[in-house]
């Protein structure tokens, strides 16, 4: 179904079960071999900061360049939009390779508008195989064609 696996996917959601279900879905779809989950924006940002500065041991399998990030909005410690504010300050070349999708239960216009501002995709929960396929088709098939 998917021609080329992604280099890595991050799942950021404070709900363990959501992360468990989404990770299972992505594994079954064989989207990637590298999936990491985080329970708040702070954790995820720290990780992205380290990766963007190659501030890690190359041998460490826990660190990889992500190509797709699913981000929940409502989270304790640091919510999705706060994380996006910080994310925008990261190295642009690093960010270029990443597709960011806000994944939330909220259909509040305020949230959908905010997602547009950050040039992020906006997906409503639950994450399904169809939604993932559509997203990959939109962003990564064109990339392949270019390459």
């Amino acid at each position: 179904m998917i021609k080329k696996k992604l280099s890595g996917v991050l799942l950021i959601d404070d709900d363990d079960t959501t992360n468990f279900l989404n990770q299972r879905l992505l594994e079954r779809m064989q989207v990637t071999d590298n999936i990491r989950t985080f329970v708040n924006g702070k954790q995820a940002f720290d990780y992205l900061y380290n990766v963007s500065n190659t501030n890690y041991e190359h041998a460490d399998e826990n660190y990889f360049q992500p190509e797709l990030i699913f981000l929940d909005i409502s989270m304790p410690v640091m919510d999705g939009f706060e994380m996006l504010d910080l994310y925008e300050r990261l190295n642009p070349e690093f960010r270029e390779k990443i597709v960011l999708a806000v994944l939330t239960t909220s259909t509040h216009p305020q949230d959908t508008d905010a997602a547009k501002k950050y040039s992020a995709e906006y997906l409503t929960k639950p994450l399904t195989a169809d939604k993932v396929s559509a997203l990959i088709k939109k962003h990564f098939d064109t990339q392949e064609k270019k390459a």
Binding site: D15, T17, T18, L21, R24, S74, T105, S106, K125, P126
Partner: peptide
């Protein structure tokens, strides 16, 4: 309604699993 939604979606997912 917002907070109920997340666990319900999860229960649905878990039921599928």
């Amino acid at each position: 309604s917002h907070d109920l939604k997340a666990p319900i979606i999860n229960i649905e997912g878990l039921l599928d699993v």
